[in-house]
Design a protein around this nucleic acid. Sequence first.
DNA 1: CGCTATGTTGATACAAGTCAACGCTGGTGG
DNA 2: CCACCAGCGTTGACTTGTATCAACATAGCG
Lengths: 253, 253
Amino acid sequence: MTGSSASAPGKWHTPCSKCPLQELKSFRKFSPRELEFVSQFKVGELSVERGATVLVEGTHSPHIYTVLIGMGFRYKLLEDGRRQIMNYAFPGDLLGLQGVLMGELDHSVEALTPVTLCVFERSKLDSLFTRHASLAYDLTWIAAREERILDEHLLSIGRRSALERTAYLLSYIHQRALAVGMLHGARRTIPLTQQHLADTLGLSLVHTNKTLRKLSDRQLIRWQDGGCEVNEPEGLLRVSGWEGLKETARPFI
Amino acid sequence: MTGSSASAPGKWHTPCSKCPLQELKSFRKFSPRELEFVSQFKVGELSVERGATVLVEGTHSPHIYTVLIGMGFRYKLLEDGRRQIMNYAFPGDLLGLQGVLMGELDHSVEALTPVTLCVFERSKLDSLFTRHASLAYDLTWIAAREERILDEHLLSIGRRSALERTAYLLSYIHQRALAVGMLHGARRTIPLTQQHLADTLGLSLVHTNKTLRKLSDRQLIRWQDGGCEVNEPEGLLRVSGWEGLKETARPFI
DNA sequence: CGCTATGTTGATACAAGTCAACGCTGGTGG
DNA sequence: CCACCAGCGTTGACTTGTATCAACATAGCG
């Protein structure tokens, strides 16, 4: 019991009461009571470099994380090294819930930028469910949202052509990045490798490159500074045949 | 408030106190208090024919369902009719949670056999979260489990070859059917069309047929009575390169 | 300086899609 | 009763999308 959230000067920097995510209109606001709980639910921060592996498939973690700053991705490997990226994690996204609920983690997570995570204590999850029904509801909501996103990815990989699929994925990432204000200021490019896209799309690296070229030729995107910049979001969306994210203010923890 | 669960003679047949799923060792048992809540959470039963559409993408349903008897599948459509099947629903599986939490349903559900569903009232979900933390936990667990399954499907469609993929899918369905006792007695075949498999695997119908033939030639499966029978589960699993389901007793609602 | 990681492009091979035809079954209506 | 039709499975021939291989360009880095 380290007391109230406002005045913990210790090792980490962002008390929940000053959580920058609360300022974004993508997220709903905490009630004072929720804020109080979350403040003591958070037991630390974890900062890692670009390229660092944050969570490892097969391990048994005592923590759950929320992305505070930066961007990463979730993936699984086959024995011979083939990799499938399942989804990307942006600020406000929860990581490791599966591992905590079901024992063993079934995927790994890697950072695409320097990433800062809020660390939550597994052992306090009980009291979240027992005493904070609204947050328990949010947790379920968050899980259902991930499910919805995976449904759309599955549709994409299973039934869309390489061009549609690529346009979909870039639209998706772009919209998500926009929603959390990651494309303001100078940094307008999404820090991805073509290998990342290939491993998300279920395509080979070479074919991904050629597909991106088609999108570049149509002026829909540009590839620069080791990343992708979206020129015409609407055009890209049209190519993909996707409806786009339709989220209002969403909860997070 | 229609009183205790034991004596409602009305229109439906299975009081929760006699829920047949409770007998299966795949599922965990309810506590008396949980049972009491679930009994009044359940407001009816819905029975549909094979081929009936149970839930429709884009609609706004006031109910959640649990499969009591039978088998179905979840799918999405593209505008031009391409279909992607996301997952199959077996007894004990929850349907429609997404729609209830997030407003609009993003997929449809169709019955593969005659199906009976328990119908739960959306409006009572609040009191589940408020007063039955253990069930709220289960709900989150169930959502996380679906997520895990979708991760594996995504890996499969994205990175496994047609043969591996098909072997994986049949193994998956077979294991799930076994776990809920659907392959006892005479009915040893899974009631699927090759079109269903194709739409799950992201393959064309013809190519699915040819891939199934390879598996038949190796004596791993047999196609008969409009469905698939698995001859050698271990062999099939070996072809797929999948580890198999590792579930102990799981919760359901 | 020579690494390594990344992106690019062309040539070729192969997996999967498409088209077409046919067989079997069960149902339905004349 | 038979004729017809629709749904499902099967197979072969051909086409196309995507993978693989190989070579090269560039940039960052120790």
